[in-house]
Design a protein around this nucleic acid. Sequence first.
DNA 1: TCTGGGGTCCTACCTCTT
DNA 2: TCTGAAGAGGTAGGACCC
Length: 406
Amino acid sequence: MDAFYVSVEVREDPSLRGRPVVVGGTGDRGVVAAASYEARAFGIHSAMPSARARRLCPSLVFLPGRHDTYRRTSAEVHAILGRVTPFVEGIALDEAFLDVAGARRRLGDGPNIATALRQQLHQELGLWCSVGVAPRKLTAKLASESAKPRVCPDGPRPGPGVFVVEAADELAFLHAHPVEALWGVGPATLPRLQRVGLHTVGDLAALPEAALRARLGENLGRRLHALAWARDDSAVVADRRPKSLGHEETFAFDHHSLATLGREVVRLADAVAAGLRRAGLAGRTVHLKVRFADFRTISRSVTVPEPIDGGHDVVRVARRLLAMVDPSPGVRLLGVSVSQLDETAHAQLGFDDLGRRSWASATGAIDEVRRRFGAGAIVPAALVEPGGASTRVKRRGDRQWGPPGG
DNA sequence: TCTGGGGTCCTACCTCTT
DNA sequence: TCTGAAGAGGTAGGACCC
């Protein structure tokens, strides 16, 4: 989808059309999550610190974002994609691979399907997308970039919308791209390649695989060499199962006390546990991530014998991990996640352990209250601050791209 | 400039078991 | 019984993607 979050906002408020708009964290520590093409003309891009984006474009319209709306819209998009083929692999809320090999007899060739799909998405949802058509995922992804609108100093120019790479042209198309276009070349690997004069995928392809392996390590060297020669036979995988689930949050101010961080851990762990139960999952390994004021990041994890999905259990393990951390340098971010997931959610119901059984039934009741009255209707006692009717409980979800502005 | 949040995958190292 | 090798699993950190 083109500038997905921003496009959803513009659809709801047409007065934003044609203006430099970004969705992202509004506070000093926030970043840009999505920028309209008008904003990109100012040099603004996603992951840029919000403060810098404001400096680049004082007339910028800054929206805090509504993740639930984007998630709902993404589901609508996927429903339309699912009419074309059941083989839809979601990459992010705004991106997916489709294997249309089996749909060609019914709907025409790849470019025809792509053109029809763009029109359908626009007619039904009021959103535009760009489609790359190619023999494999890597080149389809790059082709979709070529299909997108272009940013010029005098404003955005529409792209072709659909960009087709035929099998015969695939290598020439691929080799003309910069090395960072390849999956696996990021901010750490790019300088290592550039230092030895490898700037394009073609440069990389011309190097013997052994030389690349020696430079980048066996695995990465082999993988990048294969990708540079368009050897990527990874299939489109529909219905991917998540391997971990977590929440993390950057604070508006650094925390130095274990007591304050303890409350944050309870909130995050409780939200993660609720997410696990919603997804019908339970996990065995709990991870705690801590980023200090100087951006040094550590993680601590522990594996428990049985899968857990109850707030009480995840909180207990996460608190144990927090006790290993010295918060005195100042903590700017805390994260809790759970991995080693399986679908035996509520496994503890089967335990011959009265304590666990009563927690499990309490958890079921908590989920039901939250379903009927909202996520804030019932919270862990550790999060309730004194204040009677004015008691306010901070919940996850209102600060998706960094702490809010003050 | 001053760095989010949701993830996946890989590597290195350690411990335990066979 | 002791020892070393190999494999599995756990833990920590980092790179990468959208």
